[in-house]
Amino acid sequence: MSLLPYLDICLALLVVAVAFWTIAARDLFASVVGYVAYGLLLAFVWIRLYAPDVALTEAAVGGGVTGVLLITAGKRLGGLRNVGQGERPGFGLSLVAGVLAAAVAGALCAVILMLPDPPPSLAPEAVAAIHGAGAGLGNPITAVLMSYRSFDTMLEKMVLILAVVGVWSVGADNAWGGAPAPFRVSKPDAPMVFLAQMLAPVGVLIGIHIFWVGADEPGGAFQGGALLAAMWMVTMMAGVAQPPRVDARWLRVALVAGPAVFLVIGLAGGVVAGSFFAYPPALAKPIILFIEAFMVLSIAAALPMLVAGSPGERPDR
């Protein structure tokens, strides 16, 4: 297997080249397209780092959902014709920025090569903990996310809710209560409808599968939820489903379901298991799966809302 290192280097060079393209491209839209390709390539790097969970997340979010977000944005900005690239900065500033960037990258390279050997690691503790009081899960990452660092995970979901509120908040006052509209299509495209009808059911199944196996194998609530989110977006773009109003009660409940259930169970842990956010050992796995199921729901609702934008905007044709 002596070929692999060269492949790694090629992959790294390719990623740098695509990254350079997104920075250097003259056209806004071209750089957006470059960025989407870049996100997908990164997923391969993550695979090579033995991080399949991260690779799944990066492919779903970095390549997929961010791609839709940026391409929609790029298209609408381009369509508005007031993109205004602004004046290109002068040579002096470019030089300073280049030197600064090179210095930072160089210093970082040096520091990375200087990281201590043998490296410190919490892997032994995590492996011991999987079988111990923590979780009883086969996937150590899910155990860390849902048990040892459950507090971080809950806060991250709160960040998602705040981001949705933040995205909605920039809408016009009189549009409040309406539906976010960039996905709304004037005339459904037949192939798109076909795709949505064929793909969505399968995608939903696969999403639930990824969530379910996440307890023991790569996958989990976020990756599964992201796939469900993608399916909802496809059906909305095809016009098969309509985007919901931002004041729809069911939407709000779905958005907060994950953190709310997490919070209630965390509080209950203080009474039942002796400590906030602790699970009774015998029930740890089912409880975690229960919380995760609601997380999937919240993520599946939050990501499309983040992409869809603020309420009441007209789609641009």
């Binding site: 009081a133 660092r149 400590s275």
Partner: peptide, 13 residues
């Protein structure tokens, strides 16, 4: 001090 979930650092918070 409160150790969340009685799971001590460095693994816990």
């Amino acid at each position: 001090v409160y150790v969340i979930g009685a799971l001590e650092p460095p693994l816990g918070i």
